[in-house]
């Protein structure tokens, strides 16, 4: 394996900065791989290809976190249609309204605040209209 010129996380973040949800696919494993890695799990193959998700998924599990201070918020696991699962949150609805089976669509969340700190964007989801 030649010396890497970019890390899996840096490549993922670059996709997000372009408004894309990037993920990897391994031909040897014949399935999506998430989180991004340098080799495929199980097969160990150096065959991970970057692909762009259509950004649609289904809530697999959900919880409402109740911090001792501040508002309650959603944390969930989303099964993205291309065959990988990720942690995220569903926005635009109260956290208690997020349910297993809900169809959701990806968007990029840009953490607010100091631009100099250069915080990385991260993916969140919102309910698909009309479902």
């Amino acid at each position: 394996m030649a010396q890497a010129t970019t890390s899996p996380l840096a490549a993922y973040n670059e996709h997000l900065k372009r408004g894309e949800l990037g993920y990897q696919f391994s031909p040897s494993l014949n399935r999506a791989v998430f989180y991004p890695r340098v080799i495929a799990p199980v097969t160990g193959a150096d065959d991970l290809e970057w692909r762009i998700s259509k950004g649609l998924g289904t809530v697999h599990a959900t919880t409402v976190v109740h911090p001792q201070q501040g508002a309650s918020y959603n944390v969930c696991l989303v099964d993205v249609d291309e065959g990988f699962r990720m942690m995220s949150r569903v926005e635009d609805v109260p956290p208690t309204d997020v349910k297993i089976g809900m169809r959701v669509k990806f968007r990029v969340f840009m953490p607010p605040g100091d631009k100099d700190r250069d915080e990385d964007p991260y993916p969140v989801f919102a309910p698909v209209e009309g479902t």
């Binding site: 976190v65 944390v75 942690m87 953490p111």
Partner: peptide, 14 residues
């Protein structure tokens, strides 16, 4: 964890 920490899961409970 860059793939989880931003969502503020209250771990391990969440």
């Amino acid at each position: 964890n860059p793939y989880e920490t931003p969502y503020r899961p209250f771990l391990p409970a969440t």
